[in-house]
Design a protein around this nucleic acid. Structure first.
Length: 154
DNA sequence: GCCAACGTTGGC
DNA sequence: GCCAACGTTGGC
């Protein structure tokens, strides 16, 4: 079982949207490194931290679980979609999505600022790989963040 | 295949 | 809104 962190802009799709819908398809990924991780590494049962980006307080806000591995992202073939890709071959789709299920919205957010200040989280990819929306998380990091999220603010 | 120009992400 | 980081594009 591997652990990941998916970035999302809450104005577009938030943890509350996921909580309401229960499951979703993580579509719209149009970066090759992120795509490769979805396609090659992310498997059903993997745990996913949900992270809100481009907002007032960037933070880890909840937890989800992968229910289905990579399959074609339909939005690449939709001319109306912002993710439309005219160069993608329907016989060999370029972009994939995964499916995931809501597990929990954390009692409190673990902000990027707090992660930066936490000694045990200094190696998180989140702090070293800007602009990558599918991030690796170690089991220890996942555990630590869940602990923070269920404790009182220091 | 190099690399300059350009576009996007995302924190601040 | 600024701008740093870095991915992508396209001319050569």
């Amino acid at each position: 079982m591997a652990c990941w962190l998916f970035k999302t802009e809450p104005d577009t799709y938030s943890i509350d949207d996921l909580k309401r819908e229960k499951t979703t398809h993580w579509d719209g990924i149009r970066n090759y490194q992120a795509r490769n991780r979805l396609r090659d590494e992310i498997k059903p049962g993997d745990q996913v931290l949900i992270y809100h980006s481009s907002c007032k307080q960037p933070a880890v806000v909840g937890l989800a679980e992968i229910t289905r591995g990579a399959h074609p992202d339909p939005s690449q073939f939709d001319p109306q979609s912002s993710g439309h890709d005219a160069k993608s071959d329907p016989g060999n789709p370029r972009w994939v999505q995964v499916s995931l299920r809501f597990r929990q919205k954390f009692a409190r957010e673990v902000s990027l600022r707090e992660i930066r200040q936490d000694k045990t989280l200094q190696d998180m990819e989140l702090l070293h790989r800007p602009r990558l929306s599918v991030q690796q998380v170690s089991p220890g990091e996942l555990d630590h963040i869940i602990n923070l999220a269920t404790q009182e603010r220091p």
